[in-house]
Computed example of a mutant assay.
Amino acid sequence: MKVAYVTTDHPAAEQDDEREIALAAWLGAGIEGSPVSWHDPRVDWSDFDAAVVRSAWDYIDRRDEFVAWAHRVESATRLFNPASVIEWNTDKTYLRTLGVPTVPTHWLVQGAEPGRDLPEWDEYVVKPAVSAGARDTIRTADRDAAAAHAAALLAEGRTVMVQPYIPSVEQEGELSLLYFGGRFSHAVRRHPMLSGVAETRENRATLRDPDDDQFALAERILAAAPPDLLYARVDLVRMPDGEPVLIELELTEPYLFLRDELAAPDLFAETLAEMLKG
């Protein structure tokens, strides 16, 4: 089986240190994987039995083009995750549709007046609904600064999310639970990007067993998510009262922390092989 490992020719892809691990595991499962840039016009996607979106990390500047690409590729071959999932998941307004506990979010759309509409919180996180890697995101205790950033994003035609900063994440961190084909693989504790802790390869993540309430919430979230997912990453934080809540459900191009769990690359590959045969 020939499968495209979908990446990009943008320098961002140089940070993909999971590619060789994944491709080696795929080969062990009888899958010939080839790195392919999603926006390479020379690619005939029908040459592949499937395409798996991995490090297409420059899509954020070209989301409409990326979504159109996903639907086009899906007409030529199987796409993981499906194009409908990519379209839904690349706009964080999906958080309003899951019906599960999430970080409190104040949504601002065109016509809103941030200076008047913002809640009174000790600290704010302000970000666009289409974003990745904390891009165009600020953390501030200054309500006027939060409103000004929100207004600037609105002026660009973007939907804005305003959330309270959760101080407990500086001790607890974020918990990412990784699933392949709906099966739990592993979980890691991560430093949140806005915590002020400098991320290094050594402190980026630590394997951790989810608590019962975290695991139960992750299972509930996946049950509410679209079906037929090759991979899913459920990112949770704890509120000050201890309740776990969803901060993000990563179904498009999440980092999978394959280096952190010995069995994860093979489970990823086996799941892909099973879905290709199904």
Rank of each mutant, 00 (worst) to 15 (best):
R204S: 15
R204P: 11
R204F: 13
A205Q: 11
A205P: 12
A205Y: 05
A205I: 02
T206M: 14
T206P: 11
T206F: 12
T206V: 13
L207G: 15
L207N: 14
L207H: 06
R208K: 13
R208V: 10
R208C: 07
R208P: 03
R208W: 06
R208D: 05
R208E: 13
D209A: 13
D209Y: 00
D209K: 10
P210F: 03
P210D: 10
P210M: 08
P210G: 13
D211V: 03
D211K: 04
D212F: 09
D212E: 15
D213V: 04
D213I: 03
D213R: 09
D213M: 08
Q214S: 14
Q214R: 13
Q214H: 12
Q214P: 09
F215E: 15
F215C: 09
F215K: 15
F215Y: 11
F215N: 12
A216I: 05
A216P: 12
L217D: 08
L217W: 08
L217R: 08
A218D: 10
A218R: 02
A218L: 06
A218V: 01
A218W: 02
A218G: 09
E219F: 00
E219Y: 00
E219R: 03
E219D: 15
R220L: 09
R220A: 08
I221V: 15
I221G: 05
I221A: 04
I221W: 02
L222D: 10
A223F: 01
A223H: 07
A224H: 08
A224G: 05
A224L: 04
A224E: 14
A225K: 09
A225M: 10
P226Q: 13
P226N: 12
P226T: 05
P226F: 03
P227Y: 00
P227L: 08
P227A: 14
P227D: 15
D228A: 13
D228E: 14
D228H: 10
D228G: 11
L229P: 06
L229Y: 03
L229T: 04
L229W: 03
L230E: 14
L230I: 01
L230K: 01
Y231K: 06
Y231L: 09
Y231E: 09
Y231Q: 13
Y231T: 05
Y231R: 02
A232I: 01
A232W: 00
R233D: 05
R233A: 02
R233N: 05
R233F: 01
V234G: 12
V234I: 10
V234D: 09
D235E: 06
D235A: 05
D235S: 03
